[in-house]
Amino acid sequence: MRRPVARTLLLAGVAAVLIAAAGASGAQGAEQLTCAGTQTNTYTPGLRLLQPRAVTAGVDIALGPCLSATDPTVTSGSVSGIFPASLSCTALLGQSFPTQLTSTFTWSNGHTSTFTYRADTEYVAGTLVVTSVGSIVAGEFTGASATTIAVTTALPTACLTSAGLTEQQGPYTLVFAGV
């Protein structure tokens, strides 16, 4: 019973940070888009607790419901990707991605938005919080500042099994602001 309450409080705090960040970074305009969703991370082969190994990492993000102040036809969206990595369960903690990353969201209206960003991870109260901050550089919402936050269990018990951690899932929040 305590875990759902703690997770709810954590998510409420994350939402407050997102709203504040969107307000600060979107000083030129109001929020254009907010979405709630789920992020699923997959690892093949599974991650071990301490020893990094070469894996194929996959990310699938399903967004919805979405609320757009500028385009009511955007009600949901998605983004996915696969990339090689050298990871362990503990390597997920405290990661910072100094290089610029790019993802393309596909929206329910058939349009896309290309998001260029930097991502940082942080271990907070038993969860892994990945915060990505950047801007929309192409497609719908071009010029908007963007912030996303994904929250997953940081060290699931699967890290201790012979198969390792093969999947993580958790809530995902997105805010586009400005222009």
Rank of each mutant, 00 (worst) to 15 (best):
S145H: 08
G81K: 01
P98N: 10
A138G: 15
A57L: 06
V59Y: 09
F141D: 03
C35E: 08
A22H: 10
I82P: 00
S96H: 10
Q51I: 12
G26T: 02
R48P: 02
Q100M: 13
S132A: 15
T104S: 15
T44P: 02
L87T: 05
G46N: 08
T142L: 00
A144M: 01
T152N: 13
V74E: 05
T56W: 08
G134V: 04
Q28K: 09
G139N: 12
A125Q: 13
T56S: 13
T56L: 13
G94E: 03
V130Y: 00
V55D: 03
A24P: 00
C89G: 07
A36D: 14
S25N: 10
Q39K: 11
C89T: 04
R53I: 07
A144Q: 04
G139P: 05
T106W: 03
W107F: 07
E122F: 00
T106D: 04
T153M: 07
G26N: 05
A69H: 06
G77L: 02
Q95C: 02
A138R: 12
H111E: 14
Y123P: 10
Q28C: 00
T102A: 14
T153N: 09
P84M: 09
A54H: 12
A146W: 00
V74D: 04
L50R: 12
G77R: 01
G26F: 02
F115C: 06
A91N: 13
I61L: 09
N41Y: 15
I82Y: 01
P65L: 08
F141I: 01
T114Q: 15
V55F: 06
G81F: 05
V129K: 09
F115M: 04
G37C: 12
V133M: 06
P65M: 09
A119M: 14
T102W: 01
P45T: 00
T90C: 07
G37H: 11
Y123R: 10
D120T: 15
V59H: 11
T56I: 11
A36C: 01
T121L: 11
A154T: 08
A69S: 15
Q100R: 15
Y43E: 07
V79K: 06
T34H: 05
L33P: 03
L47R: 02
G26P: 01
F141G: 00
A57K: 12
G23V: 02
T38C: 00
P52E: 13
L93K: 03
F97G: 05
T131Y: 07
V124R: 11
T116A: 14
S78T: 12
E122C: 00
E31Y: 02
L50S: 14
F105P: 03
G134D: 07
G110T: 08
T127G: 00
E140C: 01
P156H: 04
T152C: 07
P84V: 06
G143V: 01
S78R: 13
L49M: 10
S76P: 00
D120M: 09
S78M: 08
G143F: 03
V79E: 08
V59T: 14
G37P: 02
A85G: 06
A24I: 12
L50K: 10
P156M: 08
G58P: 05
T40F: 06
R48E: 11
A57I: 05
P45C: 01
A119F: 02
F83I: 00
L93A: 14
Q51D: 12
